[in-house]
Design a protein around this nucleic acid. Structure first.
Length: 427
RNA sequence: GGAGAAAUACCCAAGUGGUCGAAGGGGCUCCCCUGCUAAGGGAGUAGGCGUCUAAACAGCGCGCGAGGGUUCAAAUCCCUCUUUCUCCGCCA
């Protein structure tokens, strides 16, 4: 959620920045400001009525004790009470419209981002190089199938299109990647967490997913009760909610978490041919990094997250690049995002394996995640940042394709060998 | 899944319709006393949000798990929900 004060005092700025992200929210913002004033006026007048009510209520027992006839007063107070109730209903209405508009507003993109969409994304660093192969490189689907790493057919049999089964060395390679990521993060000082994979609605609101993007997640409803859960689309959605409604002390910041989780996404709409295989599925594994920081340190935390993600890919010896996203390609809740894209030869291009974002105080305002400042006890919203570190479902194909050899075997990246009993080549 | 009990401030806890922003105790902070320690005496200890304000203070409003309702008036009565505990059943 955006800061109402900022919206009031910098209305034109806010509209312009959202426009850079591709949203024309001019009408919504005007209505929000109007609703805010209406609610304030209504609340002020209701408060003074309540003040009167409280005053009389305090006097009432004494009047009764003195035997004063209070019937006229009671009648007056009844009328006041009715007025207050009508006011309250009106305020509820105003608030509900206000909040639903506020929740629909995207986060402001940082000022240094290029406006516009994907086409304005800007690669800022490239790591490694494109290996020159003396043979025609194969597609990871073919390699994985031939080597028995991934069973696409049976995955589809079990759960339909967009699911696959890791088998044998494939499962072990996947597990090795996850362990490599987790061990590295732990060494970097992150707290390892394992989270519920089904969340309640409120989590999606704080994460910025709901109400606008509810279609993108799987919903679990039960035949015998009303409870509804949502399958975790990313561990970020759970992690950001860890401290929802909490008042942290500045000493506790930053809080750095990682979590491993499968991620479930509906990915409604169909695949492109280029996304054959594990590039886009309904379920994939990811280790997520997450930080709660003070506003002052979130930029440094962002750089740290990018570096941690880059180091993981670099450790695997892959050819990849870091891309600074244009305003319009950052997702709704994010102020800035850098993607890490690994080269996938079969695509003849790069594909996202990590997305590192600073959401500033946008989720914190939605979920009331606050901290008390040390010297002056002032309360402020935390900044939240997240980054994949990493999503395996795209690293796996990249490893298979970048490390493939002429005979269809795949060299195991050195950092993973200790997790695979020293195995050097999958053949 | 069934039956019951509970939720009050940092902790324990009193409070069944009105002067309750809420007794009491513990803890914590400060002060006094004692050479040190133990013990004792005194004072303080509801945060938060909203509103008002240029801002702050003060004021006003909200707050006793959450949300509704009854009432002139709700911690207190009613309804729904959540969580915790106990018992039964089922189960990795």
């Amino acid at each position: 959620m955006l800061d109402i004060r900022y919206l009031r005092e910098n209305t034109a700025d806010a509209k312009r920045r959202l426009l850079a992200k591709g949203c024309d929210a001019s009408a919504e913002i005007d209505r929000i400001l109007e609703l805010y004033d209406l609610r304030r006026a209504a609340a002020t007048s209701t408060d003074s009525k309540r003040s009167e009510q409280n005053k009389v209520s305090k006097e009432m027992p004494q009047l009764k004790k003195q035997g004063t006839d209070v019937s006229g007063l009671l009648e007056k107070m009844k009328a006041l009470s009715d007025e207050i109730k009508a006011d309250e209903a009106r305020i509820r209405e105003l608030e509900s419209e206000y909040y639903s508009l506020m929740l629909g507003l995207y986060n402001l993109p940082d000022e240094d981002l290029k406006p516009g969409g994907k086409e304005n994304n800007e690669p800022i660093r490239t790591f490694g190089y494109q290996k020159v192969l003396e043979f025609e490189p194969k597609h990871h689907v073919d390699l994985c199938t031939k080597l028995g790493l991934i069973d696409y057919e049976r995955g589809t049999k079990l759960a339909g299109n967009g699911f696959w089964v890791y088998r044998g060395l494939g499962a072990r390679l996947e597990w090795a990647l996850l362990n490599y990521f987790i061990d590295t993060h732990i060494a970097n000082g992150y707290e390892f967490t394992l989270l519920p994979l089904m969340l309640e609605y409120e989590c999606g609101v704080t994460a910025g997913q709901f109400p606008k993007f509810a279609d993108e997640v799987f919903q679990i409803a039960n035949p015998t009760d009303e409870r509804v859960h949502y399958m975790l689309p990313t561990a970020e959605a759970a992690l950001v909610n860890l401290h929802r409604g909490e008042l942290l002390s500045e000493r506790e910041l930053p809080r750095k978490y990682i979590s491993y989780s499968p991620c479930f996404r509906r990915e409604a709409g169909s695949y492109r041919a280029s996304e054959r295989g594990m590039v886009r599925g309904h379920q994939f594994n990811k280790v997520e990094m997450f930080q709660f920081t003070t506003p002052e340190s979130s930029d440094a935390a962002f750089d740290e997250l990018v570096t941690h993600a880059e180091n993981l890919v670099q450790g695997l010896g892959l050819h990849f690049r870091t891309v600074k996203l244009a305003a319009g390609d950052c997702s709704a809740a994010m102020a800035r995002t850098y993607d890490i894209e690994v080269r996938l030869p079969s695509l003849d291009g790069f594909i996202e394996v990590s997305s590192v974002s600073n959401s500033r105080d946008y989720p914190a305002r939605r979920g009331a995640i606050r901290f008390r400042r040390d010297p002056d006890n002032k309360i402020d919203l935390v900044h939240t940042l997240n980054g994949s570190g990493l999503a395996t479902s795209r690293i796996f194909p990249a490893i298979v394709e970048q490390y493939q050899q002429a005979d269809g075997s795949v060299v195991v990246p050195e950092v993973l060998r200790r997790y695979l009993g020293g195995l050097e080549v999958i053949s």
